[in-house]
Computed example of a mutant assay.
Amino acid sequence: MDTPPSRPPDSARPFLNALSVWAERTRTDWARASLARARALLAERPEAEAAFRAALEQADRGLGPFGQAHTQLLYGK
């Protein structure tokens, strides 16, 4: 099995930046929760734990039950 890269692929950065701008402009819970989840998925291994905790907290407020469950699955809960 291949080991995943230790840092996010460069191709993901423009999308993360666009999502960040969108979340800041709209200031909606859904956008902030989506940004937190994207940051967690792209976080370096040492920061991933804290990033997923933040994403789970945001998911409670902004993604509804399905989005919250999806975030939990991505985290490994």
Score class of each variant (00 low, 15 high):
20 S>T: 03
16 L>E: 03
38 A>M: 09
32 R>S: 15
18 A>D: 01
21 V>C: 04
20 S>L: 02
28 T>Y: 05
68 Q>V: 09
5 P>H: 08
68 Q>C: 09
22 W>T: 12
58 Q>W: 14
58 Q>S: 14
40 A>L: 02
33 A>S: 03
64 G>R: 03
60 D>N: 11
49 E>Y: 12
75 Y>R: 13
2 D>S: 10
7 R>S: 12
32 R>P: 07
22 W>H: 15
60 D>P: 04
51 A>P: 00
9 P>F: 08
13 R>A: 12
30 W>L: 13
58 Q>E: 15
21 V>N: 07
28 T>H: 10
48 A>W: 04
67 G>H: 00
73 L>A: 11
22 W>I: 08
11 S>P: 01
55 A>V: 09
41 L>Q: 15
11 S>V: 10
47 E>N: 14
25 R>M: 09
72 Q>M: 15
44 E>M: 03
12 A>C: 08
62 G>N: 00
69 A>Y: 03
49 E>W: 13
61 R>K: 13
53 R>W: 03
47 E>F: 05
71 T>N: 00
65 P>G: 11
31 A>Q: 01
30 W>A: 14
13 R>Y: 06
29 D>R: 11
40 A>E: 01
69 A>H: 08
42 L>V: 00
25 R>I: 08
1 M>P: 06
23 A>N: 01
50 A>D: 13
24 E>K: 12
12 A>R: 15
19 L>Q: 01
67 G>M: 03
76 G>H: 04
39 R>L: 01
5 P>V: 09
2 D>M: 11
56 L>H: 12
73 L>Q: 05
74 L>H: 10
5 P>D: 10
77 K>Y: 08
38 A>H: 04
66 F>I: 14
30 W>T: 13
11 S>G: 02
7 R>A: 13
26 T>R: 10
17 N>M: 07
58 Q>V: 05
76 G>E: 05
58 Q>T: 05
18 A>G: 02
36 A>Q: 10
30 W>S: 15
43 A>L: 00
16 L>F: 06
75 Y>H: 13
56 L>V: 10
54 A>W: 06
12 A>K: 11
11 S>W: 06
37 R>E: 13
44 E>F: 07
53 R>M: 13
27 R>K: 15
1 M>R: 06
25 R>P: 02
26 T>Y: 05
41 L>P: 01
25 R>W: 06
16 L>R: 07
43 A>H: 00
63 L>T: 02
48 A>K: 15
56 L>M: 15
12 A>Q: 12
65 P>D: 12
47 E>T: 10
74 L>R: 13
23 A>D: 01
52 F>L: 08
77 K>W: 12
71 T>D: 02
8 P>V: 04
33 A>P: 04
56 L>A: 14
55 A>P: 07
43 A>D: 02
